[in-house]
Structure formats: C-alpha cells, structure tokens
C-alpha cells in the first residue's frame, strides 16, 4: 500500500525574514540547539515594518505551531518543547494577540455577534461569491492552494480544546469532531476529502506542500486556530471561533458548489463542499446551542473571550478575502509564489 499524500511530512519552508530564518536554521540542527530564540526575540523590532501580521512573524508562528502537529521532515521532534523556541513563540503570540485586539470591536454581546453572522447579506461579497460569478479555474486552484494549509489538517486545531471542556459542551464538541474526522471512516475524514479535491484539481495533496506559496494573510487564520487551541486559557475564544466558522460554512460552501459546477470541476471537488453544506448546517446548531451554550452555562465569565474568538476569526477571514480579491481584480496572482505549470 502506498502512503497517501495527506500523510506526508512537510519540508521546512523558505525563511521570510530574520526571525523565521533563525527558527528554520535552528530546526535544521539537533535539539537543544544554540541560543536561537535569544537572538531573534531580543531584537527591538522583531516584526519588521509589516507588524505582527507580516510575513516573517506569521511564518515563524506557523512553523512553531506545526511542531505540535506533524513536524517537518528531518526535524528533531524534541524542538516541540524546547524552552528557547517556546519563549520566542510566546513573544510572537503576545504581539499577535495585541494586534487582533486592536482590530476587533470587543465587548460581550454574544447574541449580537451570532445573529449578525446568521443573516445572509442580500448582496454577498467575498471569495466564494466572486468564484461563483466570475472567477476562473486558475483562480479556483489558487483558492484551493491557500486553503490547503488549513484544510489538510481540518478540525485538528479545534481538537486541542477537548480536555478543557466538560459535560454537554465536551460531548457535543466531540460529536462534531467525530463528524469532521469521518465518523469512524478514514476515507471520509474531511481532510482526506480535501486531499481528494486537491488531487482532482491537479494539485499536490501533500500535507503542508504549499507552505511557501501561502502569504501571511493565509497563514494568520490558521495560526489563530492553533493559538486558541494550544492555550487552555483561550478555550472560550476557541469555541467562539469554531462556532463562527461552522455558521459561515454552509452559505459559502453552497456558492463554492455553484462555482465548481459553472467551471465544470471534477466530482471530488464538488463533493468536499456539498458535504460541508450538509454537515455544517448541523454543526452550526450543535456548536451554538450545546457547545457554546454549554461552556458559557458552566463558565459564564468566558463570554467576552467567545466574542473575541468570533470577531478575530471574522477579521482574519476578511483580510484573507480582501487580499485574494484585490489580487484577482488587478489581474495578478494571490499567491506568494505562483503555482508552476
């Protein structure tokens, strides 16, 4: 039996600035290495002019987080818990968090946030709308490429929260995750369905294969999930984020199905999005009422965090969409490194 592409261990990416260069350089060596983090983290301005959402800090965060998922080919697994690297990650995370706080409205009006998400705009903007109405096949393949950074580990970041929940919130979140992980069938795991989509679109289905192609705007939403998932203190935000994602998915997935039909795409491509119309129409109900509702009944003080998780998700998704649409409307590529061939 040949190994599925989705089981590949990714290669370390190319650096995008001094911090990611220091991290990647260190990972090439056995752990513990030299005082890598000390150098990088001690810089006055570790993020360059683009700030915490720029290429260098976002790639650095992505690489640090990836050590907790599948790691990188040839990299010592000991790096996952290297104190120097964790210290650097902490510096990056704190500035990421501050930057997100600057970009969101805040507050604790959870009902208000949810009902805004639950109203369908009459004139939908966004990437799925563009693809459904005027996008072309190369743009569709770019979209798949961006999303592959998350979709090939779909629902993994959200699994970190399981031991931090109790009772109904835990039972229901695990039920949703069970569905994300194929309901006990390996070939139905949503990440595997996405790997099938990639292959059907003539793209490499290898886990993390397109990391170098993905700009910071693509990595930031994935980093948000990892950040919220890996910190127990962020469980409220993680659950808010998860609920927001499930609420937005069905209408977006419907438009993706239209787009793929219009472009005559293969069945495997349509299937991934059709499954997300059906599944997420259920998931959003369960996430809102039982998981979010259950968590806040047990820990009402987490309401503001849940609102933050929703708002931060929306913020980063909007930036992602703006970036793609700006690039496409000006006739260019939305990828950091264009697809070859």
């Amino acid at each position: 039996m040949t190994e599925r592409a989705s089981a590949h261990t990714p290669r370390l990416p190319q650096p995008r600035g001094p911090v990611s260069a220091a991290v990647i350089e260190a990972l090439h060596r056995p752990c513990p290495g030299a005082a890598l983090a000390a150098t990088a983290a001690a810089r006055d301005d570790p993020f360059g002019e683009d700030g915490p959402l720029g290429e260098d800090p976002q790639l650095s965060l992505y690489v640090c987080y990836e050590l907790h998922y599948r790691g990188f080919r040839g990299v010592d697994p000991g790096w996952e818990w290297d104190p120097e690297l964790l210290r650097l990650r902490g510096v990056l995370e704190r500035s990421f968090h501050q930057e997100l706080l600057r970009g969101v409205a805040g507050g604790d009006d959870l009902e208000g946030e949810l009902s805004t998400l639950l109203v369908e705009p009459k004139t939908p903007g966004g990437v799925s709308h563009f693809l459904a109405t005027e996008g072309n096949w190369p743009q569709m393949r770019e979209y798949f490429t961006h999303r592959s950074l998350y979709q090939l580990k779909e629902a993994d970041p959200q699994a970190w929260v399981i031991p931090r929940l109790t009772g109904q919130a835990k039972a229901s979140l695990v039920a949703v995750e069970y569905d994300e992980f194929g309901g006990g069938r390996g070939e139905r795991v949503h990440a595997e369905l996405f790997a099938d989509l990639m292959a059907a679109a003539g793209l490499d289905a290898g886990y993390g294969h397109y990391l170098d192609n993905a700009p910071a705007t693509t990595l930031a939403p994935v980093n948000l999930m990892s950040y919220l998932g890996l910190h127990r203190g962020r469980r409220g935000a993680l659950v808010g984020h998860f609920a927001a994602a499930e609420i937005s998915n069905p209408p977006n997935s419907k438009r993706m199905v239209h787009a793929l039909e219009r472009l005559g795409a293969a069945e495997a491509c349509r299937h991934f999005y059709l499954e997300h119309v059906d599944a997420d129409a259920v998931h959003e109900q369960v996430m809102r009422h039982e998981v979010l509702g259950g968590l806040l009944a047990a820990e009402p003080q987490l309401k503001q965090d849940a609102v933050f998780g929703i708002q931060a998700t929306e913020l980063l998704e909007r930036r992602f969409a703006d970036h793609l649409l700006r690039a496409w409307l000006s006739g260019g590529t939305s990828l950091r490194v264009p697809l070859s061939g």
């Binding site: 569905d179 309901g183 069905p250 419907k254 059709l274």
Partner: peptide, 30 residues
C-alpha cells in the same frame, strides 16, 4: 438516508438540499 450523528431536516422548504437543511432558512439583510 443520512448517518450523521444529528441530522437537520428542513422545515422551511427552501433548502436546495431538501429534505436536509442547507441554512436557506436564514434571514436575509435588506
């Protein structure tokens, strides 16, 4: 048939995936 742990059955008759709910019941903004 659906073997999902919970199934959402459409009651608004607007679903494009009828009898499953596809969230077409949602309110639209003006």
């Amino acid at each position: 048939t659906s073997d999902r742990f919970v199934v959402a059955i459409c009651r608004c008759h607007r679903s494009g995936r009828y009898p499953w709910c596809d969230t077409s019941h949602r309110r639209r903004s003006g």
